[in-house]
Write a protein that binds this DNA or RNA. Structure first.
Lengths: 199, 199
DNA sequence: GTCTATATCCAGATAGAC
DNA sequence: GTCTATCTGGATATAGAC
């Protein structure tokens, strides 16, 4: 087949190594905490000296930034691959459950994406854009369920965030808040559709 | 007046210096972030070399621990000095507002007390006991309002925590979630007292 | 692309003189 | 109780040989 795009083996190998470095960085974050990642250790994981990592990433923050983008891309993929059910409430519930599970299954990732406690680190505009799409998707599910105000969205995010936070902080590995989530969504929906609503 | 307890001037001065060090540590936390505190800088703030701080605290973590205790003690003081109103719902609301304000007014403190992202740091049992009393007081206010189940308490803490978290992360210095708090409490109370309740 | 070597700087903590 | 001096170890990052 003439006309096949030529494969750039060099670029492929480079991308592969970058992915390998990121995977090792996640593993380190799980074991030592997010701020416990050192370039020494990270290099050792992939069989390099710390200095050689600079061939793949410009700085340590660039690695955090790639992790931030990767995490958000995964969340976006999970939420957008959800089926669109007839019942918009069911869609809302499914999205909430996906988000909650995503947060709880990896506290280090949760810290990087949502708590942002690394001094000096700010995600790049490109990475941040992915996070924006995640929020867009959530807003769309809220709209489908008839919740269109800023107040409604802010209440929703506070609720979900609070659940994830408490589960991670006070019952890691457990289900103490997870099993209350559906009930909390009932509460939320009833309130927003109830009388005297300001929504 | 015979029988006055003798003042221990040495101990007083020591306690004063400890307090001064803690105040400087808070100031540094505000400026550089919680994990940005270094003993060098901290010593410089109080006119000492870093090494001299070891006369007052056993380690850097001991300083964090004292800050943790101090923060919780302040929160406990604020919540227990609230008047006990006739209306238990009003008490609940007042407690929530105090908590929310406390969190939002000092993000570094919020991080130390509630997010616990400093690698390796665990509060001592004594410090942790103060935090326990804060939770006890909140539980008592919930009981007074007729909410006695674990589920109710867990839903309450998730809600409050989520509000504080969102306010700090997404609208620092603003009031975007603060002005929704009362409405959220309405939602919470209506749900817990509503029909088909599991509480 | 990876290495050695190095620069630069910082951290927390200890010993011992005064 | 504070100091000087020092220990030990860590960090991120750069230069240049191969």
């Amino acid at each position: 087949m003439l006309g096949n795009p030529p494969r750039d083996r060099k670029a492929e190998r480079r991308a592969g190594t970058r992915a390998e470095i990121l995977a090792a960085a996640w593993a380190l974050a799980h074991e030592q905490g997010l701020s416990g990642i050192s370039l020494r250790d990270l290099g050792a994981r992939v069989g390099m000296r710390a200095q050689s990592l600079y061939s793949y990433f410009d700085s340590k923050f660039a690695i955090y930034d790639a992790m931030f983008a990767e995490g958000n891309a995964l969340l976006l993929e999970r939420t957008s691959s959800l089926p669109s059910p007839r019942d918009p409430d069911a869609g809302l519930r499914a999205g909430a459950r996906v988000f909650f599970t995503f947060c709880v299954e990896d506290p280090a990732r949760y810290q990087l994406l949502f708590q942002r406690t690394i001094p000096g680190f700010e995600p790049s505009a490109e990475s941040y854009a992915i996070a924006g799409k995640v929020l867009e998707a959530a807003t769309a599910r809220l709209h489908a369920a008839g919740i269109t105000t800023d107040r409604g969205r802010d209440l929703w995010t506070a609720l979900l965030n609070g659940f994830a936070d408490q589960q991670i902080a006070n019952d890691p590995g457990g289900d103490r808040w997870g099993r209350l989530l559906d009930d909390a969504i009932d509460m939320f929906l009833a309130h927003l559709r109830g009388p005297g609503g300001q929504y």
